[in-house]
Amino acid sequence: MTATTRTIRSVKTPANYESIAWKWMRYSAFLLIPLVWGHLILQDVVVGVHNMDLGYVADRWANVGWRIYDGLLLAFAFAHGVNGLRQVLNDFIHKPTGRLILNWGLFIFWLSITVIGFIALIGGVNQQFPLQ
């Protein structure tokens, strides 16, 4: 029997923004499979979009588990989507200045929507429904 003489080498490859973003897209996609499917089946099939109102949201968010679920969905789905959009738009924007504007623009867009989403999630529904 011949022994294998394959050399295994180690190299230093410091992580940078692009490698982290690439990994993020893969890991968040794994989480999105159960999160998005669960969300779609519940909201669109079980409940139905026409039956959703503020009362339904208040009932749902009375349970902290659903708030965490929606928080995860917001954190992973939206960041995944915005980073995907960045990748696609990079195909069309070729100048470094354009890319810089794009990156910051998308970051501000992502941050604003995420902050508004989390304020709603944490604050919950504090109004009576039907609205007075």
């Binding site: 050399t7 080498r9 190299v11 230093k12 490859t13 940078n16 692009e18 490698s19 973003a21 690439w22 990079n90």
Partner: peptide, 21 residues
């Protein structure tokens, strides 16, 4: 290539936005 010593340099070049990603 086990005889080569430039892997880190090449991986650094390819670890950019216009590289393998």
């Amino acid at each position: 290539d086990s005889r080569d010593q430039g892997a880190e340099k090449r991986l650094e070049i390819l670890n950019e936005q216009m590289g393998v990603w």
